[in-house]
Simulated scan of single mutants.
Amino acid sequence: MTPAWAYATAAFIAAWLALYLVIRGTRGPLTVYPFLLVYRLRYSRAPYAPGTRARLIRAYGLVSVPLAMVSAALFYYVSAELFVGRYIAPTQASSQEGFVPLIPGVTVGLNELIYILLAVGVAVLVHELSHAVVARSVGVPIRSAGFLLLAFIPAAFVEPDEEAMKAVRVRSKAMIYSAGVAANLALGLTFMYLTGYLAAHLANGVQIVSVQPGSPASHAGLQPGMVIVAVNGTPVRTVEQGLRALIRSGAEGPGAAVMTLSVLYQGVLRNLTVFKPAGYARLGIEVVQAFSIPWLMSFVSAMYVVNFGLALVNAAPLAFPLPGFGVESDGGQALREALSRFRAGREAAAAVELLTLLLLLSLITIAPVRLP
């Protein structure tokens, strides 16, 4: 039987091909390439007038530069650790770690995809607005802006005046390039705190996500989606509490054990008796934290993950070739600008971008992304 995600993928590809065949190129503000849609807005903004607002935004731009440098260093640090764990000193766990691409139905479930796409939309909008306001604060007008859709991933862009960009100092250019990274880093830190805070206050049991066939849990009638709220009458709110209660009841270890699990499933509370015969080391379930407001936790954690990921990848010097044009990261533009005054500086920047892209591609892994 063909899985549902295969039909969804086929329909998705067919829709993109139909759109490309109908428009094929540029029609008014809309440009369509295979799996890439660009919509340019009639958006033009002059530089800010001298004053307190412009000075405050320039101060933010100055702070953004070291934050972007720290983000780039963190990208290389994480990449180096992953590279060593995968290729130089691999272990069973480290060989599976890496950068996970968003593939609906494969790495991201459809119920989680909506939160990730919302987070991506917010993150890129804030990112591009940060570029725009810092550019205007240093005397660079914005000539156009717009939105794009890369396959199913939403994004945004602003286009500063090219002649004005050439005229400003290198420090001002660095401020413009770094502003988006700093904004995403700030959002990532904010939502990291919110994730921890909400996790402590909204924890509402231990959710079963998979049951091993033929295991004691399977024989007892446990199913994915059930939420364990008590073990032998002891309430459990967090995964840590649930694991401790299960260990005390004998769920871990080779000996026989009998326990009563109170589970919530489809709004009904049930008590299930689980018998683990001697010789079974575990019950055979995989669990995650359950929350009283799951959609809020999913969105907040997606904002945390997406903003940190966008900050690190954008801070690194990268260039991605796309149909009709290429996309260069903020770190790539900053590096190219910094090296342009040296002989063969642009070639050196291109070489660094290529090596960084190869490093990133070598660490791609296909693993499920699971939000709370």
Rank of each mutant, 00 (worst) to 15 (best):
G309F: 00
R42D: 13
V313H: 03
W5K: 14
N111A: 15
D161Q: 07
V168H: 07
Y33A: 07
M303S: 10
A281K: 12
V306R: 12
Q266L: 00
Y60A: 13
A230Y: 02
G279F: 06
L187V: 09
L113N: 07
E163F: 07
S298R: 15
L150I: 12
A155Y: 04
V229T: 08
E347W: 09
L36D: 00
R55V: 10
F152E: 02
F83L: 14
F299S: 09
A179I: 01
V287K: 02
I114V: 15
V305I: 13
A89L: 14
T9F: 15
M226E: 00
A18H: 04
Q212G: 04
G109P: 03
G214W: 03
L74T: 14
V313M: 11
L269P: 00
Y193V: 15
T234A: 13
H201V: 14
T9P: 01
A89K: 11
Q212F: 11
R143M: 11
A6Q: 13
S172H: 13
P3M: 06
P323N: 09
P224V: 05
W295Q: 15
V63F: 15
F342K: 12
G279P: 12
S137T: 09
T365M: 12
Q207L: 13
F152R: 03
A167P: 02
V227D: 00
A6N: 04
Y280K: 13
Q207M: 14
A351K: 07
A351W: 07
Q223C: 01
G324V: 07
A72E: 08
V106P: 01
Q212M: 14
G121M: 10
P235K: 05
A6R: 13
S262Q: 12
L335C: 08
A174I: 01
V239M: 09
F320V: 13
A73P: 10
A316V: 06
L355G: 13
A217W: 02
G324E: 06
V168P: 06
A164W: 00
A132M: 13
K166M: 09
I228M: 04
A155Q: 04
Y87H: 07
G121N: 10
L243N: 12
W5P: 02
R53V: 15
P235C: 09
R55Y: 05
S298W: 00
A348Q: 07
I57C: 11
P34I: 07
K166H: 09
S79K: 07
N111P: 03
W295D: 14
R341D: 06
A199M: 10
I153N: 08
A348N: 04
Y48Q: 12
F325E: 07
V236S: 02
E163S: 14
G196A: 06
V70T: 09
